[in-house]
Design a protein around this nucleic acid. Structure first.
Lengths: 219, 219
DNA sequence: CGCGATAATATACATTTGTATATATAACTG
DNA sequence: CAGTTATATATACAAATGTATATTATCGCG
């Protein structure tokens, strides 16, 4: 487990022979165009993606072994992109209160701006092939890990205890993602209220773990 | 919104004409046999279900308009069945501690015993048609509602405050279901550890809402 | 230029799907 | 016993899908 995104781009060779008129990225973009609130990646057909990209069906095989492989690549890409954005939002904020708020806000904002891209992580982790599900799980694991470190850091900084930070990170991550998935089916004007709700939920968890830490240390 | 399960069984008419050799329930059972960790209801084909049930493809139309309608019925059935089980577990327990524990345990036990049935509520709420998603959302809403009443009742009983019980109920419900979905891809021997984790998560949320209620009342 | 290599396409085929149409079967009604 | 009606099947068809095979196009290199 060295890097987040498996670097499966086979390096642009000094192309002997016909130059590629289409790239893996083009196919991934085409696939992204097709997914949405009513369409999941796991239901995309090879021909459909090829059609959208404007190539012959068989040309697909030059770039991916099947649609599943494309989907996994897409998931990894979406995961690292989102993690970078959330990470930036987190470092901008300093106090605990604003860390929670700005992280959740950044998440939801990204949701609003780029629904297609987040779909993969939010909704499709539960259906599809094993490789598919595991890719989503891996990305969520990265989120948990980063959040966990942040929680520990913040607890030390503010001298508040934290009970089982790993568990806390997992609960928060899953909750935020689940609520994000809900938001995607709601009209945008309801998003602010939902951000508030999610923030409160997260704060409850944090308060809870702090209470448990106190109880634990006073034994 | 009067009842939880939409009663779409058209009442066994005094069947004039040929007696039905197959029922809606048979078709639903056949569909259930086909779903699993690697197969989602939304990908079931009409012919596939008909084949499993041992009828001609066209006979399907006598019972459901399409596979989506069958899926929605299945979801409703799964929802009310699970709610009943959890409800029984809840009434058996009295103290707050055991309410949390036994509810989570009942949920996970049901998960272990009858994976097929829970799949619908756990994993398929995010993909599929609108009717599909809304059916799952409705069932989850019922869970939230019942849990909310329980939380209020318990808070009054134990004289602990509760801040925004509706939000608490939603957070707990979503979290438990999400973790349940995770469990379905894990070997069974890891389930006990997961039950402990989920229980801790729930307890954190409850502790958190109690803290917030105290802070709120001391203004 | 010609030659080899790579990328893309064309054509084809067997499957599977949803559904339309027509027909057979069984049960109740008179 | 007809007759009516709900139920199930048979056959058929167009559309779509994944992929195998063969062909064409385009580039770099000698």
């Amino acid at each position: 487990m060295s890097s987040s995104t498996t670097n499966d781009t086979p390096a642009p060779r000094p192309h002997q022979g016909r130059r590629a008129v289409i790239s893996r990225e083009d196919l991934m973009a085409a696939a992204l165009k097709l997914v949405g609130p009513h369409r999941s990646v796991s239901t995309l057909s090879l021909r459909e993606v090829a059609r959208e990209a404007g190539i012959a069906p068989n040309s697909f095989y030059r770039h991916f072994r099947d649609v599943d492989e494309l989907a996994v690549t897409l998931i990894n890409q979406a995961g690292s992109a989102l993690r970078q954005i959330i990470g930036e939002a987190r470092t901008r904020a300093t106090s605990e209160r604003s860390v929670v708020r700005s992280s959740v806000e950044a998440f939801m904002e990204q949701l609003r701006a780029d629904q297609k891209y987040l779909h993969l992580l939010l909704r499709e982790g539960t259906v599809g092939s094993d490789a598919f599900k595991q890719a989503v799980e891996t990305q969520l694991g990265f989120f948990e890990e980063e959040l966990c470190q942040d929680l520990i850091r913040l607890a030390a900084l503010k001298h508040t205890g934290i009970y089982q930070p790993q568990l806390v990170a997992r609960a928060i991550t899953r909750l935020v993602f689940t609520m994000g998935a809900m938001a995607m089916d709601m009209p945008e004007e309801k998003h602010p209220a939902l951000v508030d709700q999610v923030e409160t939920m997260v704060r409850m968890i944090i308060l809870g773990t702090q209470s448990m830490a106190q109880a634990d240390s006073s034994l």
